[in-house]
Design a protein around this nucleic acid. Sequence first.
DNA 1: GACGGAAACTAACCTGCATCATGCGTTTAA
DNA 2: TTAAACGCATGATGCAGGTTAGTTTCCGTC
Lengths: 247, 247
Amino acid sequence: MFTERFLRDKRGASLEADERARIEAAISEVKTFGPRNIVARAGEPLTNSTLLLEGIMSRYLDDRNGLRQLVAIHFPGDFLDLHAFPLKVLDHDVATLTTATVATVPHAEIEAIAEEMPQLIRKLWFATLLDAAIHRAWLFRLGRLDATGRVAHFLCETNARLFSAGLSDGRRFALALTQADLAEICGLTTVHVNRVMRQLREEQLCLFRSSLVEILDPAGLAKRAQFDPAYLYIDDDSQLPSVQRPK
Amino acid sequence: MFTERFLRDKRGASLEADERARIEAAISEVKTFGPRNIVARAGEPLTNSTLLLEGIMSRYLDDRNGLRQLVAIHFPGDFLDLHAFPLKVLDHDVATLTTATVATVPHAEIEAIAEEMPQLIRKLWFATLLDAAIHRAWLFRLGRLDATGRVAHFLCETNARLFSAGLSDGRRFALALTQADLAEICGLTTVHVNRVMRQLREEQLCLFRSSLVEILDPAGLAKRAQFDPAYLYIDDDSQLPSVQRPK
DNA sequence: GACGGAAACTAACCTGCATCATGCGTTTAA
DNA sequence: TTAAACGCATGATGCAGGTTAGTTTCCGTC
C-alpha cells in the first residue's frame, strides 16, 4: 500500500514484493501535516526518514534576505530524506508545500534492513543517487537555461516524474503549486514566472491554471527546455517527449 | 598512500586504517590523463569507479549550443564517480581539467567490500551524499547569488574543501583553473567572470592570478558569498570563515 | 628573439529579468 | 458581509550581466 510508488519503474531498482513488505513493516507511524509546515531544519540530528505518501514537499535553502531556493521537490512515492540516514544531519530545511501525508521509518529499522537485505539497501542508495541526478539537472537548468526554458524544463521533469509514479497521463497532471513556488524552484521572481507562463500559453506549449498542468505540445516544450528524461532512470521512458538524444 | 585524502576529516565518516587498506587493495590500476580529456560519457555503462589522486576533474552537462554547465568539480581525494556503482550508467560526462592521476576501482571489488565490510560501504554511501550536498550548495549559488557572490562562494567552498584535504592553508591555495572554467561553474560568461575577479581584487577580498588563489579577507569573502561550510561535513570547520550561523 | 596560441583583460552596446507599483478576483477569517 | 490576505496579472523603469569585438600579456617553441 504505502510503498507502491517508491522506486516504481526505476531502471534496475524497482522493489520486489518482499522488499516492499519489509519497508512497510519498518514504518513506525503515518501522519499528516498541514500546508507550509516545516518538518525538519538544517543541522538538526534526525533519527527517522520519511516516505511521502500524499501531497507535495520541498527541500530548500534560504538566503540572508529571506529569498528561498528550492533544491528539491517531492511527490508521492519519494523518500524525502533518506540521505539523513548516512548523513545523520541535514544541510537544508524540509517543509510541506501542500497538506501532506507521510510514513515515518526509524533509522534503526533501516539499520536492520541493512543486515537482513543488503540488496535492498543498495536500492535505497540508488534512490538517494537519483535525487542527486535530479540536483544535477536542476544545476543545468539554473546555469544554462533562460527563464522560459527553466520553467519548461521543470514542467517536463515533473510530468515525467509523475508519469512514472502513475500520477500523470503524460500530458495532464494536477500540480498544487503557486507561481511563487515555481519562482523559488527556477531562481526567478514571481512576476517573471507570470510572464513566462503567459508566453508558454501564447506559444501553445503549455497551460497551467487552477492547479492543473496541461502540456499542449510535449515535443515543443521539451525542445524549449532541452529536456531529456534519461537522468530520471525511468524504466521505459520512450513515451516521454525529449529532445533527440545524441545516439 | 592512495587513500590518505579520501573522506579525510569528514564528520563520522573518516576511514580507519583497515578500511583504507581494503580500498587500496581494491585498486586495479593507476593511470594519468592529459588535461581536458573526456574520461566517461553520459549513458555509457561503467564497471569501474575512479579515485582522483592528483589534478582537477569535472563533471558537466552541455547544452544544445555547446554551452557547458559544470555540475561538480573534483580535487585529490575525491571518488569521482562512485555513484556509478549503484547507478550503473551516468547522466553526465566526466573529464579532466588539468593533467590528472587516478586510481581505478572495479565495481566487482566494491561488491566484495560490501560483503566484507558493510560499515565501509556506509562510508562510501556517505561520500556520494556529500557530493549531493555540494550539488545543493551549487543550486543555491546559481539560483540566489549574483555574479560576484557566485564566484566568491565557489572560492570559499574550494578553499574549505582543499583545506580539509590538506591542500590549502586556509587562505592560499593552488588552483589551475581558467576564468572560462569559473564561468562554466558559476553559470556566467568568461567576460563577466573577469569583471568579477577585478571587483574582488579592488575590494581587497581575494586575488587569483597564475593559478594561485589568495583570500585576503576571509570573513569579507564569506559574507559576500553567504558561505557557511556546514554542508561540507568537515570534522572541525571552526577555522574556516563563514557567515554567522543561526546557532 | 620572433612567432603563435591561449588566457587575461577591456570597452561599447544591448537585453532579459528584477524591481516597483497597481488592480482585480477569490478565498479566509473575524 | 466586510476586510484582509493571497494569488494572478500587467505596466514602467533600471540595471546586471550578456554579446561583440577587440587589445594585451604571458608562454612555450622553433
